[in-house]
Write a protein that binds this DNA or RNA. Structure first.
Lengths: 339, 339
DNA sequence: TTGAAAGCGCTACCAC
DNA sequence: GTGGTAGCGCTTTCAA
């Protein structure tokens, strides 16, 4: 692989001149320039990025760590962040942890070794122990949807008001007459997902007497949801409404219920969280709680660029219930199926 | 940010010793080692990745360039490649071009500037002009699903036998009695997608007389499919079967047909290509042509690691028709709706 | 077992 | 306008 020196030699100039000519920085006589360009082309020269990164301190990259890129909810964040970053002349490197705390720590370490302009973390598994890695970090850090206690010089936390989202959803389901619930989550032992499931169960119990709750934990995938629905539909009494911790899982639930010979929403109502794009394309379309994330890109870049130094260190976003086709009135109460 | 020198100074040793101690390479007296480790910890030292990359030539990274990460078909490839790469101690950096030839060239350039162990490209928009960028490249290159003519010392091409996939699918639809078709594609002017749409139309016409074809081009997304279905359903005569160039688009078609007040497969049959995971979760589930890609990871890493030097430079994969719920007999012929 | 020093390839500063 | 050169932070000989 040809390097600057090779080009310089071939063009009969110094490396400094080549650098200037190729980066369009500093004055270069047009003729010299042309000569350099030609030499570079002939040698198929390509600047070495690692050298540039080292030399320049590469502060035009933003890191993003998420739990599961296969879940569109996280992919969206990458998308929104990248869109805004590119607009500002930055690039984004993303890593997915698979909800594994160990991999999270590794990812974080890897990111911090990169001299980034900033770091965005949206990982449910982010807990006190993992966040130790972030201790003393000097670059701007943005934490999305996590309640870990973290003290950093330049840390912004963007949170979603899950309590109201859950409350709205539970009230809505109760108003439809549902009493027997299934709660289906993934990784319900960690971070904001643990909090969310607790919130749901609490809101359900607080909503009145006679409420029954069955719950199950599965993988964050449609396959997980499909499996989970089988478990929940076997519960006694059978739930008339299944609350999924996210839409990704809910997609599988829709299918599982159908396979069970039941209809949505006639026999069972289904709700999700997130409002991923797909939730509008399922059949029936999915009632869900929209979790805003399109602002993540703008907000994060704002903080990272230190524009908006005046911006608050804490942002609280409001979720919103979207009623679509997957929810309906609870089926008329019937006694246990006769033998 | 503390660097090696700082640690060395603090521990009272040389940078060489620190490097050895931290990387576990070469002999270091346990006591010295401990002293170094402590110093590093106290200074919150983190090795600078850019320096390492430059010094080491970083040959433990594989690049992947795809057209559209939002389409699970491409995300899968990333997933499979990364899985295998990590297993071998490599990492993967991925970039998505949005089907834009200009961005493809940029991505390719960016990748080549990184001194990678190898490069995998799966981009429909890869054409002769973009592939010039790859000319003279010395690292192993794997091209997935593209017919561009490219001559590289170490280039492996993995292709899918689209002709048979298309043929099987068309025969199947004809056997169901369909005569009026809609073909819905995205980016049907480029690369393998262009080839695939041509193949479809040709197979359709060759399948007998009386076949009518309406076609439309939309974005590679469910939203695109939804829009496309509206266009196709307005065609005269109205198609009884819609062939989508991929499942991602087909998801939207399913919804569009429903919105139009029609049923799948009673009124309209729908088929896709790829067999993305979601195609099993739609309602009705999607009949599609499975395009194998799980082998991409293994195959690519094999070629990159130069294990399997004996492996062929050309691999041809066979697609497979998966009949699910979205296809059925053509509805009984009826005359144009009476006025 | 440890240290000195030579670069990896590039950019930017300063002198000419 | 152009060239010499220092040095980004690290690893890796080679000597001691």
């Amino acid at each position: 692989m040809a390097n600057l020196r090779d080009v310089a030699r071939k063009a009969g100039v110094s490396t400094a001149t080549v650098s200037r000519a190729l980066s369009d920085a500093g004055p270069v006589r047009p003729r010299t320039r042309a000569r350099v360009l030609r030499a570079a082309r002939e040698l198929k020269y390509r600047p070495n990025r690692h050298a540039r990164d080292l030399r320049g301190g590469r502060r035009r990259t933003v890191g993003l760590v998420v739990s599961n890129l296969e879940n569109p909810f996280f992919l969206d964040k990458f998308h929104y962040l990248e869109q805004e970053a590119v607009r500002q002349g930055y690039e984004v490197v993303v890593e997915s942890t698979g909800y594994d705390p160990h991999r999270l720590t590794e990812s974080l370490e890897g990111m911090l070794a990169r001299s980034l302009a900033g770091l965005v973390v949206s990982a449910s598994e982010l807990d006190a122990s993992a966040s130790e890695t972030l201790e003393g970090v000097e670059i701007p850090v943005v934490i999305f949807m996590s309640d870990v206690d973290i003290s950093l010089p330049a840390c912004t936390r963007i949170n979603v008001n899950d309590a109201t989202g859950v409350q709205t959803m539970v009230s809505y389901l109760r108003s439809l007459g549902h009493l027997r619930f299934g709660v289906l989550g993934h990784h319900t032992k960690i971070g904001n997902l643990k909090a969310r499931s607790a919130l749901i169960e609490r809101a359900l119990r607080a909503s009145g007497n006679g409420v029954s709750i069955a719950s199950a934990e599965v993988a964050d995938s449609p396959a997980g949801g499909r499996l989970g629905s089988r478990i929940l539909l076997a519960a006694e009494p059978r739930p008339t409404a299944i609350i999924c911790l996210n839409d990704h899982v809910a997609i599988g639930v829709l299918r599982g219920i159908r396979e069970h010979g039941l209809s949505v929403p006639e026999d069972v109502s289904v709700v999700g969280f997130d409002n991923i794009g797909l939730s509008e394309y399922t059949n029936p379309s999915l009632t869900t709680v929209h979790v805003p994330r399109d602002c993540l890109g703008r907000l994060a870049m704002e903080r990272i660029l230190d524009v908006g130094r005046a911006a608050p260190n804490e942002v609280l976003l409001d979720p919103q219930l979207l009623v679509r086709e997957s929810t309906g009135k609870a089926p008329a109460v019937r006694r246990s199926a006769p033998e």
